[in-house]
Simulated assay, not measured.
Amino acid sequence: MKIAVYGASGYQGKLVLAELARRDIDMRLVGRNATRLLEAATTVGTAAGAGAAQQRVADTDDHDALVAAFRGCDAVINCAGPFTSSGPAVVRAAIAAGCHYVDTAGEQLYTKAVFDTFTGDAQRAGVTVVPAANDGCAPGDLIAHLLAERVRSIEEISVSHFVTGGGGFSRGSLRSAVETIDAIKAGGLSYDDGGWRSGTPARHTTVTLPDAPRPTDVVKCPLSEVVTIPRHIPVRHVESHVDAAVAAQLDAPLTPGIIDSLPEGPTEADRRTQRFTYLIDAVSRDGQSIRGVVRGHDTYGITAVIAVEAARRLAADGAEPGVLAPAQAFDPTSFLTFLAPHGISWTITVSDTPTT
């Protein structure tokens, strides 16, 4: 098995390389800059025993070079954001090379565009594309499917992300935020009665965390679960939120110069202090509520674990060709169980009244 990593020299890309090396999976490093690729290969080879990993230089505006870089690999993991502008070229090249594809994107409109644009191409090529294989969308989408197995006729699903500690965002995450800032400030898409719509008022402005004495203020935010969940769960409404205090951090002006002056990403010590809680709250049409809770630490590190395992499973076991949500491509219980040794815990609680 060989897995190509696009954006291999970036912050998230290097974490993916380290995870591939830890699992002794053959890899090919692909990116825009030969010097940075060599540095990344040397770092992984020295630190994780990867040996002389292959390197290929290819930019997103050179389709033929990208296809050649991916050819001969079983899957591609794309870590190069901002995905909204550069991601489609990588998906297109992976499909043309006959490779399964996953990415670490957190950009909601990009995730929807992958479904809208590449489903037919992937089906015809016999490959599977799974966007947003990251710390939030993958476990959230998987556990939502388990909720739907417990409670039938779901009316509404609300997804909420809470992250504390961790030393802040990587430069790549900030660049993605800047590129999609209008969608972020507008709250992104909601799913309503069979379609995705922008400008829909939030149904929830507070969410109560497990064991919390009082509700926490939240704001609508464009999370990819809004795109993926309705593809495998019959539901009338899906919306997503983040902690209002965290969202306010993006109100500060960010220029390319400011971003370039920041550290590449959180240090390993900072990542160890980070904690996240993701809530998936569902309400059935008869008013019964059910909550899924995902807890863990180190969003960037667990994203690397999820992306590598998703690509490995596609390469080893296959899935239905096309563009799929995580819960369509993988068995939810099996994948979530795999994540447990990596610090991910999850629970499902059913109650008789809606969660607020």
Rank of each mutant, 00 (worst) to 15 (best):
V102Y: 11
I302V: 15
R295F: 03
T60Q: 10
R32F: 09
L37M: 09
A75S: 11
F169K: 09
T273R: 13
D211T: 09
D270H: 11
A8V: 08
I95Y: 00
I95A: 01
R71W: 00
V238I: 14
R197K: 14
C79I: 02
D193A: 14
D135R: 00
Y110L: 05
V235R: 09
E155F: 07
V57G: 02
V44H: 08
T111S: 14
A50K: 04
G194V: 04
A48W: 15
H161Y: 15
K185C: 03
T35W: 04
V219W: 09
P215V: 03
T347Y: 05
E309D: 14
R271W: 09
L38E: 15
M1N: 05
Q288C: 10
G126T: 02
F169Y: 14
K2C: 00
L15D: 02
A58K: 04
R272N: 06
I25D: 08
A4V: 06
V44N: 12
D211Y: 10
K2I: 07
I229P: 00
D217Y: 04
A52K: 12
T347D: 15
A94V: 02
G98A: 09
D298V: 04
H100V: 05
Q288D: 11
S224I: 00
D135F: 15
T60C: 11
P256V: 08
G167C: 03
C79R: 06
D270E: 15
P82S: 10
D61S: 14
V226K: 03
T104Y: 04
S198M: 13
I302S: 10
T84Y: 13
G301T: 01
P230D: 10
S345D: 15
E239N: 07
R152Y: 07
Q249Y: 10
P210V: 08
A244D: 09
I233G: 07
G126W: 01
I184Q: 11
L17S: 10
H145A: 15
G167F: 08
V151L: 15
G126L: 02
I3Q: 08
H237C: 02
R150V: 02
G168H: 10
H237V: 02
P215L: 07
A93H: 08
L142K: 07
W346S: 12
D317A: 13
H204W: 12
V5I: 15
G322T: 03
V159T: 13
T333E: 14
V130Y: 11
L279K: 03
H161M: 14
V114W: 05
F83V: 01
L142I: 04
D286G: 07
L146N: 05
A96I: 00
G194Q: 11
A8H: 05
T333A: 13
F118E: 01
A304F: 05
A138V: 04
N78Y: 06
G72T: 03
V127M: 04
